[in-house]
């Protein structure tokens, strides 16, 4: 895998190969990741998938930004960007 860019709430963020979404966002100066569905601010906290504070939405699903590798062309939004309703 090589590096590339993914989209974060509509803005391009560069990442290096193997970097997690969360680390790439921190590298781009993004600390406040948005709000979780309960309305509380989200952020990188434990870095190991334990605290669930870093949830972001990829393909409609919530994933831990610290565990999920960034991929070129991925569309990532804050967890509080309303999920689309599938029918």
């Amino acid at each position: 895998m090589t590096g590339g860019t993914f989209s974060w709430n509509g803005r391009d963020v560069a990442f290096r190969a193997g970097e997690s979404i969360g680390a790439a966002l921190a590298g781009a100066g993004v600390d406040a990741l948005g709000h979780d569905p309960a309305g509380r601010a989200t952020r990188w906290f434990c870095g190991i998938g334990a605290c669930q504070n870093c949830l972001v939405r990829v393909g409609g699903r919530l994933v831990e930004a610290c565990l999920t590798p960034a991929e070129d062309g991925l569309v990532v939004v804050s967890a509080d960007v309303a999920e689309e309703i599938d029918r």
Partner: peptide, 12 residues
Amino acid sequence: PGVTTAGGLQVM
């Protein structure tokens, strides 16, 4: 936001 665990910073 901006507050992490020390380990979380170290992971990064």
